[in-house]
Amino acid sequence: MRLKILNSGYGFGTKVLFAFIHAVSRQPVPDAAKLVFYRPDFYGAPMKEFTHEAMRGPSAWSVGDRELMAAFVSKMNACAFCIGAHTATAARAYHDEAKVSAVLSDLETASIEEPLRATLRMLRKLTREHAVNADDMRAVLAAGVSREQIEDALAVCSAFNTTDRLADAFGFFVPGPKAFEAGAKFLLRRGYR
């Protein structure tokens, strides 16, 4: 990573934890984890709470749907680390890798429910153009999506609009598929807290 403190600025307890994660997962500690463990009082601790609530808290969207939104928003931001991490997690949550790759390669032709498609369209515009209007929201509501579901999708989008930016600004190392698989297992078992 571009800041030395994010590679080596950790106390003894955190280093022991990293060694443990490395031993259990047989993969290096992902840079996303290093980021939230650096001075966690400043950013990591409150951000983990919010991300966990958005990704695993009560919602009419399934965990798979929300992981797909995370992968999709990351695709719009061209963030290689988060695309890899959340494509793997969504595929594992759905038990359907083909569905996830279909959505990421062409949202319009992918075989998914219309409410999810309409929601992803709105997230695409918000992420690419940095704004949406009332007409965009009316289109999502007209597809049968509730106000609460839209709010839940916006929380996911906001979490990843933050994380994607940090991954690219700090220069997260993008590991191979085995590491993303290990990360996906962890995120589905433990969540983001």
């Binding site: 940095h130 009332a134 007409d135 509501l141 839209i150 916006l154 906001s158 609009n161 600004a169």
Partner: peptide
């Protein structure tokens, strides 16, 4: 850098919530 990332995400989040409120 963290503040910059959160700031941009927040502007987008708030714009979208306002658009949703208007549609509702």
């Amino acid at each position: 850098v963290i503040c910059a990332a959160i700031g941009q995400a927040t502007r987008q989040y708030e714009t979208a919530l306002e658009a949703l409120a208007a549609a509702m």
